[in-house]
Design a protein around this nucleic acid. Structure first.
Length: 559
DNA sequence: TGCGGCTATTG
DNA sequence: CACAATAGCCGCAG
């Protein structure tokens, strides 16, 4: 483990052996030095947060392993406030009211710090001025800062071992850290996308690229007219749901809302409905996934870039902006591998119920995971058809209590009591605002604001919603952890084939690979899945499956 | 100008 | 419209 701190404009420092040995580094040589250390020693780099990894990436250094203090802290205590001062205070059990930099005004005088190179105060807190933008860094202070990072990482290892199985804790923290490296790389590298193909698709929905604002308005007006010509409300604003409701009423269609689902149910009653649904599709492309989107996010190098987050606020899934996680299926044919490259795409099959079987330790449900389609044995067990079994299992994980799955839910309770109790326990925690911790040790905060008088209808429905949130967080969160272990395992092995992960999508990986290595990387993804399962799961009772294919366009895979 | 509501897309 | 997310536009309050 080797701690590295970089303060742009001030310099850098490294520390190892828990901070007992340390050196300052001139800022100009950080990249070269880090590259040589990485090549010769392959250390686990301790960093305060992703900024250091991103800085290295900009210097052209890709490190293989790290301990990201902020990422591990989010795992340990949840939330987003993971600056060094807070992390340090939390690890030392100090009260959450952090000291702030004292204002110097007419009534106070600046007190000289007797030990200005020491970041820790007598009361144990970090000095807040060390976190200020204009802090007067010196090489002595940078060195102490690196030593402190090394000490902090050591404290986290102990803290983690107290909340997760001691054997599994380090690998989970390392995966969360490596996920930060992966996210830095995904943000930097982008997703290959063919601009011409993308513009052709956009054009097929909204017409050619308008050259002026007036032209754009004219095209918008023409699209509106295609719908409005079916009725006699020429000034109706199709972007206003209330007015659309009136429009529908004027043609004799009464609906509670104007969502696509509702509209589809009355599709045959009037030609306007069909036109409106078509209009919605085009409008979506025009406003969100159109020329403006391409101009903003698709670089001249044919890479679509967004900002990647390694864990979201809820349960720790990865998120991405710029439409990388919700790109309409119609645009995916434009995601094309570069010359002499292919994509290897892999998605985990039925990941959430398999995760539930694993984390709950339900032996009967684990037995069902031995099958490629685990809903089939569940259906047999429950004496219902497959579709019903699937709805029931998903309903149990999401907290559905009404509808078609409700009856089968009672069957689930009988057949898989261990798994159902696990979900129920999380549900109760959520309802009363008690934090839950996922199997991998992520704390999911449940302290919601404003629980009203218990008993009234509003507060009961809010409690139920919080219960569903808690129930789902345990499954979705554990699935996210497992996915990250898989992804970072692939990341570390893919380099041998000059392959890079270019997209992570909750249960799906897209890897960009030189064509000659396509099949080898496809095999690699399967191997990494088995390896991830061995590292992440408590035992080997649950089988995980993936669908892997070698393709040229993202849209080429069957499923 | 910021925020909740509505709607869309995705896993 | 079960769970999660990002994102755009509208109306309304300040």
């Amino acid at each position: 483990m080797l701690a590295l701190v970089i303060v742009p404009g001030a310099g850098a420092a490294i520390a190892f052996d828990g901070g007992r040995h340390s050196w300052p580094i001139a800022e100009g040589v950080v990249g070269d030095l880090a590259r040589r250390i990485e090549a010769e020693l392959r250390p686990r780099w301790i960093v305060w947060d992703r900024a250091t990894s991103t800085q290295l990436l900009h210097d052209g250094v890709r490190v293989s392993k790290c301990w990201d203090i902020a990422a591990v802290q989010r795992l340990l205590v949840g939330g987003w406030r993971t600056d060094p001062a807070r992390v340090w205070a939390e690890l030392h059990g100090l009260p959450a009211e952090l000291p702030v930099v004292a204002e110097v005004d007419l009534f106070t005088v600046a007190v000289d710090d007797p030990d200005p190179d020491e970041p820790v105060r007598a009361d144990g807190y970090l000095k807040p001025e060390w976190l200020e933008r204009d802090f007067a860094w010196t090489s002595a202070r940078l060195v102490r800062w690196a030593e402190l990072a090394a000490q902090t990482a050591a404290l986290q290892i102990d803290a983690l071992a107290r909340v997760v199985d001691r054997r599994r804790a380090p690998s989970i923290a390392r995966a969360e850290s490596a996920a930060e490296l992966l996210c830095a790389e995904l943000s930097n590298d982008g997703l290959p996308m063919d601009r011409e193909a993308a513009e052709d698709i956009v054009s097929s929905f909204v017409g050619p690229r308008p050259r002026t604002e007036a032209e754009a308005a004219e095209m918008r007006r023409r699209r509106d007219t295609e719908v409005l010509r079916h009725a006699s409300m020429p000034n109706c604003d199709l972007r206003n749901p209330a007015q659309v409701k009136s429009l529908l009423r004027s043609i004799g269609v009464e609906l509670p809302d104007t969502r696509a689902r509702s509209l589809e149910s009355v599709r045959d009653s009037h030609p306007l409905v069909d036109a409106l649904l078509e209009w919605r599709k085009a409008e979506r492309i025009a406003t969100t996934f159109g020329y403006a989107w391409l101009d903003e996010h698709l670089g001249g190098d044919g890479r679509l870039r967004g900002t990647w987050t390694a864990c979201d606020g809820a349960a720790g899934r990865m998120t991405a902006s710029a439409g990388l996680h919700n790109m309409p299926a119609q645009l995916r044919p434009a995601v094309i591998a570069e010359r002499d490259h292919v994509f290897v795409r892999a998605d985990l099959g039925q990941i959430e119920p398999r995760i539930l079987a694993s984390v709950s330790g339900d032996r009967a449900l684990a037995a069902a995971t031995q099958r490629d389609d685990m809903y089939a044995p569940v259906a047999e067990q429950l004496g219902v058809d497959r579709a019903t079994a699937k709805v029931a299992v998903l309903g149990a994980m999401y907290g559905q209590t009404t509808g078609h799955g409700a009856a089968a839910l009672r069957g689930l309770e009988k057949a898989y009591p261990v798994a159902m109790r696990y979900l129920d326990e999380a549900d109760r925690s959520g309802q009363v605002g008690r934090d839950v911790r996922t199997d991998g040790g992520r704390l999911v905060r449940m302290a919601f604001t404003g629980r009203g008088e218990p008993g009234d209808r509003e507060s009961r429905s809010r409690a139920a919603a919080q219960g569903r949130y808690g129930r789902n967080a345990m499954v979705q969160g554990a699935a996210a952890e497992f996915f990250k272990v898989w992804a970072v395992t692939v990341r570390s092995r893919a380099g041998a084939f000059d392959a890079r992960i270019v997209l992570c999508l909750h249960d799906e990986l897209l890897v960009h690979v030189p064509s000659r290595h396509g099949q080898q990387v496809a095999d690699l993804l399967e191997q990494c899945l088995a390896e991830a399962a061995r590292h992440w799961a408590r035992d080997e009772s649950v089988r995980f499956v993936a669908d892997v294919s070698v393709i040229e366009r993202w849209s080429d895979s069957k499923s």
